[in-house]
């Protein structure tokens, strides 16, 4: 679930407050806060909409792992899902390179 909002990366645009389908963030006038962590559905979408890769959703959906911002930074995980998709600065990209058709052929 959502675990980190990086204060150093965040530009206080509140896009995460707007786009989170589970409404886990609250706007504060500064850096948004994780107000309802347990409502997080671990969909990773806030990460890809964040224009500055300031958010980190840990892989565990059943509860928090208490990973810290410095761990995430050290392991290069900020923005890693956006990069895998080809999204940049919170904008879509990369679907034209999706090789899933090859998987579907192999699947049969």
């Amino acid at each position: 679930m959502i675990e980190v909002v990086s204060e150093s990366r965040c530009v206080e645009c509140n896009i995460c407050v707007k786009v989170c389908p589970a409404n886990v963030f609250d706007a504060t006038g500064g850096v948004p806060v994780i107000a309802r962590q347990d409502d997080c559905q671990t969909c990773f979408l806030c990460e890809i909409y964040c224009p500055t890769d300031a958010l980190y959703v840990a892989e565990r959906a059943d509860g928090p792992l208490a990973i810290t911002e410095s761990d995430v930074e050290e392991r290069g995980l900020f923005g890693s899902y956006s990069r895998a998709l080809g999204w940049k600065r919170g904008k879509p990209g990369g679907s034209e390179l999706d090789p899933t058709h090859r998987i579907r052929v192999a699947q049969v």
Binding site: A58, L77, S80, Y81, P99, R102, I103
Partner: peptide
């Protein structure tokens, strides 16, 4: 080859593995 297609075609599926 399939591993590569899976990684690039289903990136969401690999988020839990890469973060573990």
């Amino acid at each position: 080859a399939l591993q590569d297609w899976l990684r690039r075609g289903q990136p969401n599926c690999f988020v839990p593995y890469d973060r573990a």
